[in-house]
């Protein structure tokens, strides 16, 4: 039972009739680093969304950290969200708050004590290498730095799982690699499981991590130390 995520016969059909995921079975171990790759419409975003219960599976079972996501009531979703961190392509920072406040926000929302917030926020910012930008505002930072703030916010409550939906989508290759270094570091040092959806070929090939390949809603391959293969696109 060292699987952090387990999907059994999962199917996702949207209300407009399109099916995003067909009969998906998947198990992801604790502490692993997994890429989910595939072209647009392959269902990788849907898969990520089901993991943090933005979407519910139409059929099957999604278990994340021991919680049955499909059976989770709307009012109890926060229990799942506190176990994981999420990073998006568009950073989703609060523009009128400083870097520190943005990261602290995640802990304030769950009622953490002030001293604890301070300690954890500074530690998270150190882990992403932004300790010297604590008092800056998001618009004073580069895209890569903003994404690192978002990562700091996602890991500040020490989650078991970090979900990344195209985190490098808005960044140039150099900054993308910077982000990947940060993520790899978090994976190694904190032991956080990372699931990252991406279509960036270069990153996947360089990192040599586990790769889940989706194609039009079907699982094509699940490889250790996988590469981005053209057939997936």
């Amino acid at each position: 039972m060292s699987d952090l995520i387990r999907l059994k016969n999962v199917e996702k059909k949207y209300k407009n009739g399109t099916t995003a995921i067909y009969d998906l079975n998947l198990a992801i171990e604790k502490g692993s680093f997994v890429f989910i790759i595939g072209g647009s419409g392959s269902g990788k975003s849907t898969l990520i969304k089901m993991l943090y219960r933005e979407e519910k599976p139409t059929k099957g079972q999604v278990i994340v950290g021991g919680l049955d996501v499909a059976k989770l009531k709307n009012s109890k979703v926060y229990k799942l969200r506190r176990k994981l961190g999420i990073v998006f392509q568009d950073y989703r920072l609060l523009p009128k708050q400083t870097v520190y406040e943005n990261v602290a926000f995640a802990l304030e929302c769950i009622g953490e004590k002030k001293e604890m917030i301070r300690i954890n926020v500074l530690k998270a910012l150190e882990d992403v290498g932004l300790k010297n930008k604590v008092h800056s505002y998001p618009d004073q930072l580069s895209g890569g730095e903003q994404q690192r703030v978002a990562i700091a916010r996602a890991i500040v409550n020490n989650p078991k799982l970090l979900l990344c939906d195209e985190p490098t989508g808005n960044l140039d290759p150099e900054m993308s690699m910077e982000i990947m270094k940060v993520l790899e570091d978090i994976n190694k040092r904190r032991g956080t499981t990372i699931v990252m959806a991406t279509h960036d070929k270069e990153i996947v090939n360089k990192m040599k991590k586990q790769v889940v390949t989706l194609k039009q809603g079907h699982l094509v391959k699940f490889k250790q130390k996988g590469k981005y293969e053209d057939e997936a696109i």
Partner: peptide, 16 residues
């Protein structure tokens, strides 16, 4: 709205 969506993502309860 933005703040609320982030609150939801980071695990704020409905009550909060």
């Amino acid at each position: 709205r933005r703040e609320i969506s982030i609150m939801r993502l980071v695990g704020a309860s409905n009550f909060t």
